[in-house]
């Protein structure tokens, strides 16, 4: 059940991998769409935490083109609903996330990413 809301917060945590380690790149993904309750207050409150370009690029890679290149200044309902969908309703069930810097692969199985590191990768 990894969704873009958490993917957008997640950088690589391998030892000495401190730059260019975000966003992790999805590979070979299987998606599932599951409806979630729309809470405009939550979505608005979450906006300042978002790395916008990473979110838009990742959503497009997963086939959702509803978000504009730039974060709009006017937050109308349509925009918030699209953002809600991208953040909370697209579930990556299978595949992996790969670090753009060190290429560490975090496999995703039954929706759960495996973030465990080998001994030599622990900071």
């Amino acid at each position: 059940m990894v969704r873009l809301i958490t993917h957008n917060l997640l950088a690589c945590h391998v030892k000495n991998c401190n730059a260019n380690n975000f966003p992790l790149e999805f590979q070979n993904v299987q998606l599932e769409i599951r409806e979630a309750e729309f809470n405009p207050e939550f979505v608005k409150g979450f906006l300042p935490k978002i790395e916008w370009k990473a979110l838009v690029d990742t959503a497009r890679q997963l086939g959702d083109t509803s978000l504009p290149n730039e974060q709009p200044e006017m937050l109308d309902d349509d925009f918030l609903k699209n953002l809600h969908h991208v953040l909370l309703e697209i579930h990556v069930e299978e595949g992996s996330m790969v670090c753009p810097n060190c290429k560490h692969e975090y496999p995703i199985s039954s929706g759960i990413p495996n973030m465990l590191l080998a001994e030599h990768e622990i900071a």
Partner: peptide
């Protein structure tokens, strides 16, 4: 947890290895 269909995102993680979440997440 998956069987019980909780709504949160779940991660397999050893907290003693640290997190990779961005500041202020």
């Amino acid at each position: 947890a998956l069987e019980r269909e909780v709504e949160g995102d779940l991660f397999l993680q050893d907290i003693g290895q640290g997190f990779g979440f961005r500041p202020g997440s």
